[in-house]
């Protein structure tokens, strides 16, 4: 098992009320899987992926990635984990605003020895003609493509995407999905993708449904469709 989540809990306390964003989540996926996490708003999807990505902490439970329980790691260990194993694609891109598109990609290429060439990856996402532009000079779709390039360039084992298409129109969303599919199929990167869009689930090997911080359904799909065939 490449990734195994067990008994994962995350409890927020605001004033006197407590919210269990994650209330005992268990699941596991194999290496190279394309996983889609579905669930209504507030069901704990972002919380889950953030903990798996090592940018948030669990209150209880295990997150084992290739035999290493990252819930046990200290801040330093988490940094190394993120540095070496994880690529992040955020819903709102989070490009470093003072660096150009190309420099944003370079900034993570630098982190890993197994990185791809930044120029090649930018070409792959179709952004080489705008590589010298700053984030605020790019459209949302363009920014997201740069963000994917940035996440992919260091050849992570685990690519985590929190609603990468949420802010995009149909065409741009399709382009992004195509890219993620390519990364998954060609590089063998395990992809975890959060979405509200059930149509996207059809291209996944595994679909996990969350509700109120729990896994309510898990579907394994041995024959996922290609991203071009996804329509909504």
């Amino acid at each position: 098992m490449f990734l195994e989540v067990a008994g994962l809990k995350r409890i927020y306390t605001v004033g006197k009320t407590t919210v269990a964003a994650l209330d005992g989540v268990d699941f596991g996926v194999e290496k190279g899987a394309f996983v889609v996490v579905l669930g209504p708003s507030g069901s704990g999807k972002s919380t889950l992926i953030n903990i798996i990505g090592g940018i948030d902490r669990a209150d209880a439970g295990r997150v084992v990635v290739e035999g290493q329980d990252i819930a046990r790691l200290d801040a330093k260990g988490l940094t190394e984990y993120r540095r070496n194993s994880v690529g992040f694609v955020f819903q709102f891109y989070n490009l470093v605003s003072s660096l150009t598109a190309y420099e944003n990609v370079l900034a993570t290429a630098y982190l890993s020895r197994g990185s791809f060439d930044a120029g090649v990856i930018l070409d792959l996402v179709g952004m080489s003609d705008k590589k010298n532009k700053f984030p605020f000079e790019l459209s949302g779709g363009e920014q997201q493509r740069v963000a994917i390039a940035r996440a992919v360039v260091k050849n992570p084992k685990l690519l985590l995407c929190d609603e990468p298409t949420g802010a995009l129109d149909y065409d741009n969303a399709k382009k992004v999905l195509g890219l993620l599919e390519k990364v998954n199929r060609e590089l063998g990167t395990t992809v975890l993708l959060i979405t509200h869009n059930t149509a996207i689930a059809r291209m996944a090997h595994v679909v996990i449904r969350l509700r109120s911080g729990r896994v309510v359904e898990r579907v394994d799909n041995p024959t996922p469709i290609a991203s071009e065939q996804v329509v909504w």
Partner: peptide, 9 residues
Amino acid sequence: TLMALGYRR
């Protein structure tokens, strides 16, 4: 962002 990307402190 840099921290999330895995830059060390």
